[in-house]
Design a protein around this nucleic acid. Structure first.
Length: 626
DNA sequence: GTGCGTCAGGCCC
DNA sequence: TTCAGACACATTCGG
DNA sequence: CCGAATGTGTCTGAAGGGCCTGACGCAC
């Protein structure tokens, strides 16, 4: 037996060595292992750069896509539609292992890729070339239905060595977890191909395609990268702040907008064609067929940044002229109310992800695009201009074209069938010069205020909340637009909802680096003398606290269900959340949006925790407000 | 064959 | 979306 | 004055809840 294993192992080794000359997916996998083994960023960069240098341009281009963690394939519109569940079945089938063996391996490693390598040790494919893998991914994406996809995934993994299979699985699930993301790949490209980091970053920002950026770097043509319409740029992000004082501590001149609870969207328009992109740069136009027309009339190509929001149009619309012509209003004065107001995110969610939108939905859930920035117009990229200038350009663009916008919108609304809308339609007869009736604005330039003191900011904040919005965006008027970056030029100030004291009823092991600790807590509140679950939380505790809690929960388990354990209801947590929803996910009938643990409450015993009545109170208060 | 419920995948916050 | 943790780099402190 | 300590900016990883889509199984 031992002798046989030795022979088999020797053959395997021989094949592997031979394979390393014939295949190169192996090389990528080995580089990933080395990257995962170090925590030093510079070292990771060096490994990636060395790897890229050792590949042909085609191979390097595909590799950058794999390494950057962007959903593959970044340059196509389809997604693979292969997730953990399908992979789990394929891996089980290929290895011939039963599920409990896989589960044991999963406990040990915490990620499916590592499990794959582990259980496939007994088998060995001949190894793959990296372009072969990319090709297989395309085929999987093109295949219709899980059955067809499963067969292709199975075939691909059966030809891979265990180590290759590990990283193929990780790439498919879009989660390499080796501490490399797009920005680090940019650094590696600069290092490997020449060109400054800034040039690589700029080219990649404009192209939105890391593989293409690498090709330009190889050819020394980074400077030729240009803005491409319908290839979305990254989104500029905001940092959270704690107080009004902090909101004015980073810059002198602050522009202030309401923070709307919708979905962030970049609009591209060119030659009358309009398309919208989400924060992950996916196209979302199909869910909002009522928006493009309103923008299509603009005479020039443009790229806007804004928020799509479920919108409640006002009963009595004010004269358009009055609203649009006002650039800065008196601090605290709300112009937004005259345009209508945002409805809760949960309403908008029903339109999200729709491929087709029925007339009924269009009527019941009208939306508005609140534009707050312009990134490109008049053939010029505007991101390096200060916000003050961009705001002015935006104002001029939308002000000039309002006739077209409203004319088209009026046509859309008049064809509506829902009785409520018909009523509103007749109530809203307004004329714009000798043009058509104005019925609604589905494109709205987000009102901008100004704040010079914390007191003014507080006032604006209160007003924003009164309008049912989340809070404020506070922006540095002199700042450029930095795509994909989260800096201190844009700040967000959100309302703080009351917190709940809850009792932990069940715990789960985590994933990845939290695989061996109980990091995931299900908790409840009292309904009479019974605990009813209201949510789960995972973040907020430090690693040390999680480790401590793990020990306690292991010793106070009521029932060990493997991955999950019900525990003695003794531990009290204070949890915060952004929102409370009605839901049948948990037996309390409520669920929390973005729950997080504020702190442990060792000073409280389970009996002191909050009740379902208090939860209901918070829910009603929040709804009354919105 | 049609219609309904279930479930995984993907993506929004 | 949220938070904690880690690294790279800048700034300040103490001998 | 210089190396160590401290602070800041930025990135990474882990994870909740809800909704839509498209396959697929099942009942009729």
């Amino acid at each position: 037996m031992t002798a046989f294993n030795g022979v088999e192992s020797a053959i395997r080794q021989g094949l592997s060595i031979l394979g390393s000359h014939l295949t190169n997916m192996r090389k990528l996998a080995e580089s990933c292992e080395a990257i995962a083994a170090t925590t030093k960023k510079l070292q990771k960069t060096a490994i990636v750069a060395d790897y890229l240098k050792s590949r042909t341009t085609d191979e390097a281009a595909v590799s950058t896509v794999f390494l950057s963690g962007r959903p593959f394939p970044a340059w196509e519109e389809t997604t693979m539609q292969v997730g953990g569940s399908l992979l789990w079945r394929v891996v089980a089938g290929l290895s011939g292992k039963d599920e409990s063996t896989l589960t044991t391996a999963y406990r040990k490693h915490g990620d499916l890729g590592a499990v794959t390598a582990d259980v496939l040790q007994e088998r060995f494919g001949q190894g793959l070339r990296i372009l072969e893998v990319a090709d297989a991914f395309r085929q999987i994406a093109a295949a219709r239905g899980p059955a067809a996809k499963t067969a292709l995934v199975r075939d691909l993994l059966s030809r891979a060595t265990p180590l290759e299979a590990k990283y193929i699985v990780k790439i498919i699930t879009g989660d390499l977890r080796i501490g490399v993301k797009e920005s680090l790949v940019e650094e590696a490209i600069a290092k490997a191909c020449g060109g400054t980091l800034a040039d690589v970053q700029r080219a990649n920002m404009l192209l939105g395609d890391i593989g293409e950026s690498l090709r330009l770097a190889v050819e020394g043509k980074l400077a030729t990268a240009k803005t491409r319409m319908f290839h979305p740029l990254g989104f500029m992000l905001a940092s959270p702040i704690e107080s009004a004082e902090e909101g004015l501590s980073y810059f002198a001149e602050a522009a202030v907008e309401d923070k709307y609870d919708g979905i962030r969207a970049q609009a591209h328009l060119s030659d009358g064609e309009v398309r919208f992109f989400s924060r992950t740069r996916d196209e979302i136009t199909s869910s909002f067929p009522d928006l493009p027309d309103a923008l299509a009339g603009l005479p020039q190509d443009a790229i806007f940044d804004g928020e799509i929001v479920a919108w409640e149009y006002p009963q009595n619309l004010v004269q358009t002229q009055e609203v649009v012509d006002e650039f800065f209003t008196e601090a605290g004065e709300s112009r937004a109310g005259k345009l209508g107001r945002a409805r809760p995110f949960s309403v908008l969610q029903q339109r999200l992800g729709r491929k087709k939108v029925s007339d009924k939905i269009l009527q019941e859930i009208p939306v508005a695009y609140l534009v707050f920035d312009v990134l490109y117009a008049g053939g010029e990229l505007l991101i390096d201009r200060p916000l003050q200038e961009r705001a002015r350009i935006l104002y001029e663009l939308l002000a000039t074209e309002r006739k077209v916008i409203h004319h088209r919108d009026a046509l859309r609304l008049r064809s509506g069938q829902a009785p409520a809308q018909r009523n509103i339609g007749t109530q809203r007869k307004l004329t714009f010069g000798n043009e058509e009736e104005i019925s609604a604005h589905s494109i709205i330039r987000a009102p901008i205020f100004r704040a010079a003191s914390p007191e003014e900011l507080e006032e604006l904040f209160t007003a924003a909340q009164a309008r049912g919005n989340e809070g404020l965006m506070i922006k540095d008027l002199s700042s450029p637009y930095t795509p994909g970056k989260r800096g201190k030029s844009w700040l967000k100030m959100k309302r703080e909802l009351a917190t709940l004291d809850v009792v932990v009823t069940a715990v789960e092991f985590g994933h990845g680096k939290r695989v061996s600790v109980l990091s995931d807590y299900t908790f409840g509140v009292w309904d009479g003398d019974r605990l009813v679950n209201i949510g789960k939380a995972y973040s907020g505790l430090t690693d040390a606290e999680i480790a401590e809690m793990t020990q306690w929960f292991l010793q106070h388990t009521i029932e060990d269900q493997g991955f999950r354990r019900t525990v003695e209801p003794k531990i009290v947590l204070e949890v915060a959340f952004n929102n409370m929803m009605q839901s049948d996910r948990h037996d309390s009938g409520y669920a929390l949006r973005f729950p997080r643990i504020v702190r442990l409450r060792p000073d409280k015993s389970a009996e002191d925790a909050d009740t379902i009545e208090r939860a209901r109170e918070i829910f009603e208060k929040q709804n009354g407000k919105a």
